[in-house]
Simulated scan of single mutants.
Amino acid sequence: MIHSPQAVMLFAAGFGTRMGALTQDRPKPLIHVSGRPLIDYTLDLVHALKPTRIVANTHYLPDQIEAHLQPQGVTISTELPTILETGGGLKAALPLLGPGPVFTGNTDAIWRGPNPFRLVQQVWQPDRMDALLVCVPIAEAMGHGGHGDFIPNEDGRLTRGPGWIYGGVQIIKTDRLAEIPDRVFSLNRLWDLMLEDKRLFGLPYPGKWCDVGNPQGIGLAQSLLNATNV
């Protein structure tokens, strides 16, 4: 049985509707931030791990993302005719990802500080965890509204509620995806199963994080990348 993640799943299929006109002719992962496609910042973090496989899902304007990612060693999981959301997208990509737990990463955030994939790799304990999420305390988050997604207890176990924001990077076991019969569903469905068993964990990110979910987030992300003292 494989206990340590060997593969990475990147979520790149969304419509990016909050970006307005910026995503009329290109998918959100290819919007430029400080002169580079947004997804390339996540790819830098992933390539540093030297994983055996990197898979990205696509749906909206998939040809553009495929042309950008395939030369960088990324395998494409195309979702047509229906976008499958995060849980359905991960389930559909399992034949490409292989067995065992996987890293997953959103492609619409900028991290300034330690590599979040490396952090979660160092803390992962498969005997007691079904998923380990990198979370961001509200005070360290840029470009994100709301009050957070999870409340941690003293040993890192999570419950739903205001406190930490899920930053978009995790290690997660995939075997319980088979318990969800739907084709289209959010990863929240899988997290709920883990919450019931008290096996959903989180760790706080010790740096800065910016959500690039709307046009204002681009400017915030660029200021974070250009800051000399963070």
Rank of each mutant, 00 (worst) to 15 (best):
A141Y: 00
G113V: 02
G168L: 03
Q122K: 11
L96K: 00
A92T: 09
I110A: 00
R118L: 14
N153C: 12
G89L: 02
G163A: 07
W111I: 04
E154F: 14
L97G: 01
V136W: 02
N106I: 13
T159F: 10
G105Y: 08
Q122I: 06
F103Y: 12
V123G: 11
H147L: 15
G161M: 07
R128K: 14
P137H: 05
G168N: 02
T104G: 11
I151K: 10
T107H: 08
L97R: 03
R118C: 14
A141E: 03
C135M: 08
G105P: 10
F117T: 08
L119H: 05
A92P: 11
I110H: 02
L133R: 08
Q121V: 11
E140N: 15
N153R: 09
G113T: 04
A131E: 08
R160T: 10
L94S: 01
A131C: 09
P101L: 02
G156S: 05
I151N: 06
G168W: 03
D149K: 05
I172T: 11
P101M: 09
H147R: 14
G146K: 02
D130H: 11
V102E: 00
P126V: 08
V120I: 10
V123D: 10
A93Q: 02
T159Y: 09
R118D: 13
V123C: 13
Q170M: 13
Q121N: 11
G89R: 06
A131W: 06
N106M: 12
G98Q: 05
E140W: 13
V120P: 08
L132V: 03
D108K: 00
D149P: 01
V134C: 13
R118Y: 12
H147V: 13
A141H: 03
R112Q: 15
D108L: 04
I172M: 14
G89S: 08
G167D: 06
N153Q: 10
F117H: 04
A139M: 12
I172V: 14
H144V: 15
Y166W: 14
L158A: 02
R160L: 12
F150D: 04
I151C: 05
L119N: 02
Q122E: 15
G163V: 08
A92R: 09
I138G: 11
Y166K: 06
Q125V: 11
T104E: 12
D149S: 09
A141G: 08
G167C: 05
P95E: 01
I110S: 01
D155C: 15
Q170N: 14
L96C: 04
Y166S: 09
Q170V: 09
F103E: 03
P137T: 08
G156L: 08
A93H: 00
M142L: 15
A141Q: 07
T104V: 11
V123H: 14
G163M: 03
N115L: 03
L158G: 05
M129W: 01
Q170E: 13
P116C: 05
N115W: 02
N115S: 04
M129V: 02
I138T: 14
